[in-house]
Design a protein around this nucleic acid. Sequence first.
DNA 1: CAGATTATCACCTACGTGAGAAGT
DNA 2: ATACTTCTCACGTAGGTGATAATC
Lengths: 503, 503
Amino acid sequence: MDVQVIRGMYGINRIKGEDYKLKRKREKLKLLDHNENEKEKKENIVVGNKIESRGVDEKLLKSPPKSMLKTPPKSMLKTPPKSMLKTPKSQGQQYPGFMGSHDVKPRPPPHQTPQDKDKNIRIKLENNDLWQKFHTLGTEMIITKTGRRMFPIFKILLEGLDPHAKYILLVDLVPIDDCRYKYHNSEWVVTGKAEPHMPGRLYIHPDSPASGAHWMKQSVSFHKMKLTNNNLDQNGHIILNSMHKYQPRFHVVQANDIFTMRWNSFNTYSFEETSFIAVTAYQNEQITQLKIDNNPFAKGFRDNGMGRRDRLPHFGKRMIGLESSITSDSEEDKEGDKKRVRASVSASESSSASIETKDKPHTDTPTSTYKELSRPISNSLSALNRMRNQTSRNPLLPPSCQYFPQSSSSYFPSPDVYYQHAAPSGTSVNYPTSSLPACQLSGQSSAVSSSISGSFGLTTSTALAHTTLPPSHTSLPSCNYMQAGQAYSAITPNVMGMPGHFQ
Amino acid sequence: MDVQVIRGMYGINRIKGEDYKLKRKREKLKLLDHNENEKEKKENIVVGNKIESRGVDEKLLKSPPKSMLKTPPKSMLKTPPKSMLKTPKSQGQQYPGFMGSHDVKPRPPPHQTPQDKDKNIRIKLENNDLWQKFHTLGTEMIITKTGRRMFPIFKILLEGLDPHAKYILLVDLVPIDDCRYKYHNSEWVVTGKAEPHMPGRLYIHPDSPASGAHWMKQSVSFHKMKLTNNNLDQNGHIILNSMHKYQPRFHVVQANDIFTMRWNSFNTYSFEETSFIAVTAYQNEQITQLKIDNNPFAKGFRDNGMGRRDRLPHFGKRMIGLESSITSDSEEDKEGDKKRVRASVSASESSSASIETKDKPHTDTPTSTYKELSRPISNSLSALNRMRNQTSRNPLLPPSCQYFPQSSSSYFPSPDVYYQHAAPSGTSVNYPTSSLPACQLSGQSSAVSSSISGSFGLTTSTALAHTTLPPSHTSLPSCNYMQAGQAYSAITPNVMGMPGHFQ
DNA sequence: CAGATTATCACCTACGTGAGAAGT
DNA sequence: ATACTTCTCACGTAGGTGATAATC
């Protein structure tokens, strides 16, 4: 029946503009009041290798995938947020006592294993409520040849670092399974075995290395990271395959610079709600709408309430000559169409600042603009092995890929450490590095130098506050602490960022 | 007679818009063909403590000040550039063999003194031809409460660094004399003694510390530095007094980080043509026009040839209620006024890249856009004493200030080192630090950490090429090598950039 | 044909710039 | 009235965003 209504999204070329727009508009009305429920926040806190998930309904996290994706979008979007919240909390700050408070006593992590690299580190996904919204629908991330940023932005709150020690913070993306997907009849289905994963580049936060005090001062934002589908990318962006699922991982390494960084001292974490499918065009319209509603750069696509006529139609200029007049003549259409809103746009929010790079907005939903600079570090590194992930990790995407268990041995040649909070680093966990492509460092564009933040030896006011936490539930991790063990091998410079490669 | 035509510039409030515009337009026609003479470049190269000035007419540098500022602008602008050029050179690159060439043998600097901190360092002001144009007219720099960038941009080419050592690069601004000026009858005249100079902040290049290879890879741009007249500035901008003259100084310090930076190992240079008067509004219209013609951000004020009507008049919204309708109604004025030029704007130039911060254009005249990131470093440092400058240093601004010699003792408590290429660092050069305000570190906005560029140990292709140079002329220095001696005292952190000071 | 990718566009954010009006 | 200083604005640059049409 409605199987034919929108066959994937590629009906675009046939189901033309207006129909599609109306459809999205209808759905948007439903989405809107959902988006208003912004203030109730879940909190997922990690202490050492422990995972603390607060306010998330356990059942929801474990079971919903298939059913949620199959149910018509509208019916399901109205309920989950409220019901998911066990602890309303209603604190002004997401994580009270986390940033800048002095008076909360440290509490020893409830579960320590000798393998922990740094058991005192506690992290939190800053904007996890927004991530959760996307995750519920099945997050998609656009990848382009020139590189596209992620949205929502990957932002981490850190605690428990040594304020005076220096750390390097990085993110990489690992395949979730070994399947290729397609979006069929409004759901993601497996279509085959995955393409080979390109050498997994690392995105090193531009401030790295910086002191623990620096990293804990405010959340650490990775908004400048870009994803590309260009296997030959020379800009240091992270290379992904379209229609494949990925999981961002966050690494904390205490090191004074890249060369002294020891791969076996990685503290690695991941958040389920940040998993996504890489796409070259959005498939799920609800995802599109969620992006439009929350990404400030996409404001131009929001219906601002009323009276505002839609944005001009435009015509790709690829038509080879005839009728190109439409493009060049369409200028007079824009009369007083500008500056309609202006005032009400970017005010009101000035709470959580984030460590990174002045420049661009990098705001998720309600996030303040703040000031900071960043530096380039596209550079050489290497030979990092990916770790194996268990199947069906993302509870909200169907674990329908059958390829992983059988065929993944060459990609995931080692015992699972995923969902395992501390892998015995000195024991049997072993990641042969020979057959794996070297991991390249991913930095922005053309920089050559690494960036090292001086620690200044300042005792900042951000004094390692620890709040008391509920006992951990290893069964419902939103954040996973992963131990790299010997997964990462020698450091070998690669050609990325060498002089002359970029201009 | 024409004394009254434009009394300074503050006739603006009386000699209203149109008259002023017409006047500027007339002058612009004269200025235009002057601006076309872009390709003939002078070269000022510094080797160790030696200054090499090529292609600059000696007389012109020594004498012109008063007379040039008094002559009507038009008559003088057409001649100087051509006549100043002794060595047309006409090389594609400003400094052949400087960037990225391997085959030029190092030549020992012709004059070495034991006091040299690093006699191998050679620097060059990249865009000195543009600076010279401004300097000829008497450069003005706008300062505002929120901070304003400099234009032209201070850009330095470096040579002779140890590729593997780390260096910190900084800029500060020192008062040229102890006078306050005003612009009267189209010339700058002294009106009194200078205001006290605020604690002289340092602008540390965001890439600092970085390897010598990094700094030599391309020119080092300080375009992000901002000037302010707000004595209470909390953003780390450099604080200046309006209507006072300043001289930028460039410092190279070999150090792994800010704390190991030794103040007595500064290699300090300055270029006469970069001196300027700080103003809150432009006084000399020729300066205004030169800025408009060369600063890409001011393109909106250029006459693009023909047919284009002037930009809309606008009305400051400070009027307290009545008639504010003009502002909000003026939207329909803008019809098809957009995207007139579009294509011809930013193409064509892709020669000299510059080390700094992707983000914004930071192009002077013909400079390529390039890619690089930067990082924030507003931070603490301090207790740096300014060095004394000789009077009447800027040959193109009248040395009419009488205050300097008598009253400057507290500001310039030490023997001159300016115009002196190497001060005897271990000898009698002594800069008492007690009575002087601490020098604060100037960084962009809110950052807390210092930034350290890893050296990577890479031997880059920028292999310290030295070209053969004519013998130095200490009598006509465009660049001055300054030895700090013991001018810089202990490093004491200040409050700038401490957590909580900025949000 | 259907699926997937790409180039181009209008429209944003962010911010640098001098003009002009208003404040001091 | 004069000599500045400050605020707001139109108009640039640079670049992120999804829509769309064309292409692969």
